[in-house]
Write a protein that binds this DNA or RNA. Structure first.
Lengths: 221, 221
DNA sequence: ACAAAAGTGTTGAGAGTACACCCATGC
DNA sequence: GCATGGGTGTACTCTCAACACTTTTGT
């Protein structure tokens, strides 16, 4: 029987690209190579529970939005022997500060750069599949909102879309596309001005309930 | 470690609904209950290879179009113990006759009826997920063509779309939607008349290469 | 006042729908 | 010829992109 593991692609919105959480492996094979957080699935737990457990162990984050991506089962993907990985992607909102335990151990890496790097196992391929899936789901799911804080502006939402698509969008066109669906969530507040220009209006995040929470303090970070 | 298996949702186009291939279980649990063809994944084979092997063992069909659906891992899904199933759906064109070994052992069941039945394990849920996925992919993939023979007509293609969507489409609207993409594959032949009305024009199937082939004769069929 | 960014109103092109009409076959 | 179903052409609608314009802030 192949060994069953999960891998988690933890993503958040950075300045110029999506950022993916990677950690430096301590064990062979691929010692000191960057890899996705992951681990074996235990008896009696679903793969989704395993993914949540891995996330909490590595980053102290609980209850993140998870989406099953694909199951990778090429017998050659792990040099130690046949292992099968159920990959999930997790979306971390820009609400809180990003957890980052030890700069020598883990890192937030720009996604497109990470895909081109030499990562452990087939993890570069898993990142590529995550990006493609996210791009495909962008316009008919709420995925983008899981990358935004509890209050956000249209320009912020546009920025997330641009990060996912990897191209820039025209502000007026984008605004029109989302105005109708968003107006239900308009607040009377405006965002603090960011130096120049008119401040944007704030919207309530429609998926705020599913947002991240830091686990009870006591863990590593 | 959970046990790793594959399940295959083998679908084809029937008269009034999609048909799914189910077989009557011989073993406990769920003895003599209808279930999806499936089986354990062997060391050294990918889940896709395992799915192909299961298909060939059960139906003598080789090289069918397969699509990974989802991985089901609820620890309670198998009463014997924790097992994880990677589900695939397979599309069987209406080219050849449908294989059907023993009417007491296996059957082609209308999909929507099957979803409502009491099937073994969580197989009804797997069927439901297959239908939803197929519906979502219908308009931006070639899935529909994998259900059609090597030569097909626009009304046949429309019929497949109607089966997947579960609703009827207007012939003129549908024709316009597919005409441009299809005209590259128009042949000079026309279909034999089906009793009344003008015969439809035949098109070459754009995905005919990926079609089914019966394995070397010698098995059960 | 001016620059910068947010937000709005108007126009025009393209996709998709409805409707009407023409074509090829069996009886 | 007529019924039946396949195929096409035309007008209408609705969405979406482009462009021009107004609003609100910081300097």
């Amino acid at each position: 029987m192949p060994l069953v593991t999960v891998e988690v692609v933890l993503l958040t919105a950075g300045e110029r690209d999506l950022l993916v959480y990677l950690r430096k492996r301590r064990e062979a094979p691929f010692e000191s190579v960057l890899s996705l957080p992951g681990g074996p699935v235990r008896i009696g737990e679903s793969t989704e529970e395993a993914a949540q457990r891995v996330l909490e162990t590595r980053t102290n984050l609980q209850g993140l939005y998870l989406q099953q991506l694909y199951t990778f089962s090429d017998p050659g993907r792990d040099p130690r022997g046949h292992s099968l990985s159920v990959a999930y992607y997790a979306l971390f909102p820009t609400t809180h500060q990003r957890p980052n335990a030890d700069p020598l151990e883990d890192a937030w890496v720009p996604l497109r750069a990470a895909i081109k790097r030499d990562l452990a196992f087939d993890h570069a391929g898993i990142l590529e599949a995550s990006l493609k899936r996210l791009q495909g789901r962008l316009n008919y799911t709420s995925d983008a909102y899981y990358l935004l804080p509890e209050r956000f502006t249209v320009p912020q939402l546009q920025h997330v879309h641009e990060l996912v698509l990897g191209s820039s969008l025209k502000p007026d066109v984008f605004t029109k596309r989302v105005r109708d669906t968003l107006k239900r969530h308009l607040t009377r507040e405006t965002a603090p001005s960011n130096g120049a220009g008119r401040p944007a209006r704030l919207y309530r995040n429609p998926v705020a309930s599913g947002h991240a929470s830091l686990a009870t303090v006591g863990g590593a970070p």
